[in-house]
Structures are given as C-alpha cells and as structure tokens.
Design a protein around this nucleic acid. Structure first.
Lengths: 350, 350
DNA sequence: TCAATGCCTGTGAACGTGCACAGTACTCGA
DNA sequence: TCGAGTACTGTGCACGTTCACAGGCATTGA
C-alpha cells in the first residue's frame, strides 16, 4: 500500500517508463523496415508475404512487445473477438456443479485458440436481461453461449432480433429447432435408472422431479414414465426445485402420498441428499427399505451416506460440443443438435 | 429438432433486414437535429447541454435503438470498459464453492453499474498464463481481479509490468502489501474452531491442512497452532490438497500417527467429508469418539452425516469488498486490505 | 527486346467515437 | 450601446487497424 499513490501521476506529455505508449503497428513497421500493410498481412496470416519480410516482422514484434489493439481491429472489421456466456439461472445452483467449471475451462481454451475471449453476463433478473440485450444489440459480442435459458425467456427474441449466432448448453425447450445445442441424453439416463430400480426388484417407485420448464425437469420425468408407464400414478411423482431443502420437503410429501414406497428416483444429487435426510428422519433405511437414485454424479454424490447411485452426464463432452457448435456457427457451417449418452454409476444407495 | 437445418442460410453479400447497419452517433445526431458533439455530451453526461437538446437526443436514441460502439470509444479513450477475472487455480475446486457464484454475481452487477463487463480467463497452465499476460500487455482490460493466485505466480510480475490495476480475492501470500485484497479472517475462524473443540473437552486434537502455499492452508494452520500451541505436535498436523480423496487419505495418516485422537479440525468441508469416510471405515463414531470440524460451510457441509460443524466465511461480503476495492483502484483512490469476520456454525459433527 | 504475368509491397481511406477548440447567441452590468 | 461574460453548440482531428487498390520488380514466353 506504500507506493499505491505515486504511480498515478499522468501529466499530458510526461510519458514515464510505466506509462510509455504501447507500440502500434507503425512501430513494428518501422522496426522491421516494411510497411503497415505488410505487418498486417503477417499478423493475419493469409496473403503473399516474402519469407524475409515475415521474419523481420516477427522479430520486430518480439522486440517491441507489440500486441494488436483489439479495439482498432474491432472497429475496422466489426467483429469483436469475444463471445458472451449468458447465465439465465436465477438460482446459484449452476455453479455448484462441476459442470460449470468444465464448461468454463473448455470454453476459454477453445476460444483462446481462435484468439477470442469470453465475457460473462448474468441475466438472472430483468435488469440483467436488459443489459444482455443491450450488449448484444450493440454488437459487442460475435456470439452467445446460453446456459440454462428457459423456454419463455424474452432474451431469446432479443437474440434472434440482434441476429447474433447462439447455441445453448442443454436444449432450450420449445426452441430446439432454432437454437442449436449439445446435451446429455437426459431421457435415456432417466430410463436407465428406472430400469435399474425395476431390475433390483423394486415395485413402488416414486420420483422427485426438477422444475418442469427445464429440460432436466421434463426429460428426466419422461424417461422415468417411459419405463414405469401407468404404474407411476400421479401420487408417485412430486415436483421440486433442485435444492437440498426442496428435495427434503418433496421426499416428505412423497412418503405421505405413498407410505409403502420402496424406491425413489430423484432428478438431482443435491435434491437426493435432501431426500436421504427425510428418509433417515422417517426411520427408513437406505437402501434396505427404500432405494434412492440420483442424477448428475456431482461432488455431493460420493459424500452422502450411503453414497448415491446416480447417473453421470458426460459434461466435459457436452461443454466441448457446445463450444464446438458455436464456433462452427461463427464459421457459417451447418450445425445439428448433439445428444450424448449418460452412464449409470452404482454406489450404495440403490 | 425438425427444422434444425433451415435457418442457417447466410450468403455472403445478402444483407437482409437482420444485417442492417447498426445506427451510429451520426444517425442519432441527424434524427435529433443536433450535432455529434452534443449527442456525445448527452451520452457521457457531464457537459453543458440544454434540456431541449437532451430530450431530443434521448428520444432519438430510443427511436433508432442506438447503442454506443465500444470499440470506437475504446480506441479513442484507450479504456476498454472491461475487467478480467483471472482464475489461477489448477484444480476445479473453486467452482464447487458457492463462493464463486456469489463473486460472479456481485462482480457482474457492480461492474454493470459502471457499464463495464467481465472477461473470464483461466491461467491454470503455462499456456493460459501466457494468454493472460498477452491480454494484459495488450491493454485489453482496465483492471484485473485475481482469484486464488499463488505467491510465486509469474503472472504477478506481468501484471506489475503491465501496470494494470489489480486486486485479489483472498490474500496473495507475500504480496499483501502490493496487491490489495479482501478476505475472510481465516486465522480468526480457525482459532474459533480450535477453541470450540477445546471447550468441548477434547484433548487430542489433530489438524488436516490445505496446501501451505495458499492463504487458506497457512493461515488456518496458524490459527490452530495459535490456540493449541506446543500441544499440537508435528504428528498432529498433516497436510492435504483440498480434495475429498485427499482428506480421506490424510485422515488415515492422522489415525496412524495418533490412534487415540479425539478431535480433528479439517481445513475444508470437502476434505472433511473425506475424513468422515475414513473415520467411519476405521470404526470411529463421530462425534462420540472423534469430533470433526470443517471450514467453508459449503453445500456439502449439511449433506454429510453427521452434518458438519464448520466455519462460515462471509463470502458475499468478501466478494463485494473485492470488487469495491478494484473499482476504487480504477478511480485512483487509496485502498487498504479488508479482512472480514467469520462465524462458527455448530451442527452435529462436533 | 518487349509485353505479359506473376508475386510482393506501400498508400490512402474508412471504421465510430471523444475531445479540444472555435464559434454563436444571449444576458448582464456599466 | 458596448464589452465581457456565460451557456450552449458544431467541426476537425486523431485513436490503430484492415482492406482495396495501385504500383514495382522480376521472371517468363514470343
């Protein structure tokens, strides 16, 4: 903190060593004895440049420590070199998923290869949505990466209007045909879990779902009812909100509805952790009395007791594919939605 | 998914209604019957503008849907309007913390108020570090927000050289005086936990630390030994890596060292979850035989059985303060490190 | 030897903005 | 009535790039 105040002297002409002007393409041109045009050509690859010129330019770049000025480039090319990741989830749930970490890493890495960067925006409330809309309308991003965007989100119209290439991580319900996406096979994963519970000899199998306006909410339910069919009466399915407390409450409700339940499929590990607590409080043993199946294979799944049998999503792959889709879209290639297989992870709870 | 293939027609020259030119400040000037200069003045507040002119401009802005071109502004002012959040953590641990979510939200919100945006970069490996360095040297960000940056990170020199204002979330060991930061009172929190365990009548208290080159690693240990003093022999302290598996292994080691241990303070909840498993496997009851204290109060803390007694960090506040520091720094204000108090959360494990 | 054909290079203009400066109109006091 | 001041407004320029264009120079074929 000592020196914090003495390097902010910035008089007009006085360019100290700290504040020295950043080298421009002109400086590089001068240092390498060629013209701006040639330097630009070297920097952007492509065009016809002699080997000697290229070498001179590269040396000069290294010497001067030149880094391209994105603002100037952007102004001329009207491409910003950045894409925006839009988080629409009001809850914080997102981040607790290792999910997100992987996505982040994959996205920044893949974009970096193209010298692009990742801007993060949270569109949780109306204010946030407006900001994102303004950002996109202003052309401040070359593309958008949508995370957990809901079906009716007005932002979707904005994006369409702005004409910004966009892809989603996980299907955007109702817009599957408009917004390309990569996703895990939610339906298939749920089906596998339901089949597994049946194979284990369970007969009274309930389900706790996520919100039905999310793909994870509705598709996992579809997979479940696809197997259980009419056996899964209305009382056997309760809806919750992806939180631990919500899962606990839902489990209590389910036990009230169906006291002789012998298995439950919970649509997320966090909710399943809540369900375990409710079952424990109700004196049911897991898995002896009631088998519990989760979904996600998140960190929490191996921390609960008993450890959760769950469905693992190929999140790294999903993230990778999502980013790949966006990049393909930026290159004007044709893209198709991608759906990737899940894997049943058997632990102790079922 | 049916129509997935019919909205991607984008021929080269065909500028549809979608691709129409974005309105510039000239268009706004024309539409409102004033000059560029006046529009600029209205947009940037400050200067002397008549009420009628201002009204006309605002109406024209709304009419035309004008959004300022950041690239052009940035080129002229040589401020980018964005700050970069640098994640130095090689592991993914970061994200599993609700920590991060809060930080993200706070950062984007506070920056949005100043019409700035948040760029995310991961400096996990050398390649990532180089990218961040280039980004900063290129002047692509007005400031940097450092997350879990280690003491010896060469990036720190780069930042200094680039002269970019930077703050850290949590102290950067060894640079506390150079890089302002906000942090929880790690030492105090650990002290509180140690005192609590002593108060509960525990006598043989061990500790599992995080890596000692992180503030959480060394400061929590300091708080612990501050209370236990010489009673905490070398064998009573084992080091680990913040992972669940690491915590489990460390606990086994600790039990081997000190079989008659009656309490253990684990420097993170995730490691504590691992420790619980090791204790369970070794046939020790928690908390009857061994009391377990965690740190962080993360989501996992209430999911374990027994639920973890732990130390809650005021993460929202820390995040807020960190961002506030950065903004103050951007405004050339003087800043001091901020340390915020923690809170002991008593549950079942101790 | 000359024209034609490459490859390679330099130059001017433009992208959209903010800022300094130069005005203009209007008020006020002497 | 005039000068000085005040409040507001318009204009030229520069920021650092990319891109189209116009050459220059060598090599080739006739």
């Amino acid at each position: 903190m000592a020196g914090a105040s003495d390097n902010r002297v910035r008089h007009k002409g006085e360019l100290s060593i700290l504040t020295r002007k950043r080298p421009t393409i002109h400086d590089v041109a001068e240092a390498s004895g060629v013209s701006r045009g040639t330097v630009s050509r070297v920097l952007n690859g492509k065009a016809n440049v002699s080997l000697s010129a290229e070498a001179a330019v590269r040396r000069a770049v290294a010497e001067t420590g030149y880094v391209v000025n994105r603002a100037a480039r952007s102004l001329k090319t009207s491409r910003t070199g950045s894409i925006v990741m839009v988080l629409s989830e009001p809850q914080e749930r997102l981040f607790e998923d290792p999910n997100f970490s992987v996505l982040m890493r994959v996205a920044t890495n893949q974009l970096a290869e193209r010298d692009m960067s990742l801007v993060l925006m949270i569109a949780g409330d109306d204010g946030g949505r407006d900001r994102v809309a303004r950002y996109l309308r202003g052309g401040h991003a070359d593309g958008a990466l949508l995370i957990s965007t809901h079906a009716g989100d007005p932002l979707l119209d904005e994006i369409e209007r702005a004409g910004v290439p966009a892809v989603a991580l996980g299907a955007v319900l109702g817009r599957e045909s408009v917004i390309p996406y990569a996703a895990a096979d939610e339906r298939g994963g749920a089906r596998a879990m339901a089949e597994y519970l049946v194979e284990q000899g369970r007969r009274k199998i309930g389900m706790i779902t996520g919100p039905l306006d999310t793909p994870g909410g509705s598709l996992r339910l579809e997979g479940f009812t696809g197997v259980l069919g009419r056996k899964a009466g209305k009382q056997m399915v309760v809806h919750s909100d992806y939180t631990q407390a919500g899962g606990e409450a839902a489990m209590r409700r389910l036990l009230r509805n169906v006291p002789d339940l012998d298995a439950v499929f919970v649509a997320s590990d966090l909710m399943a952790a809540g369900a375990l607590q409710a079952l424990h409080a109700a004196g049911r043993r897991v898995p002896e009395d009631v088998a519990v199946g989760g979904f996600d294979d998140s960190a929490i799944a191996s921390a609960t007791r008993p450890a959760l049998t769950t469905v693992r999503q190929p999140l790294a792959k999903v993230a990778e594919e999502t980013v790949r889709l966006l990049i393909a879209l930026l290159d004007d290639e044709e893209v198709e939605p991608v759906i990737l297989p899940t894997e049943l992870i058997v632990r102790d709870s079922a």
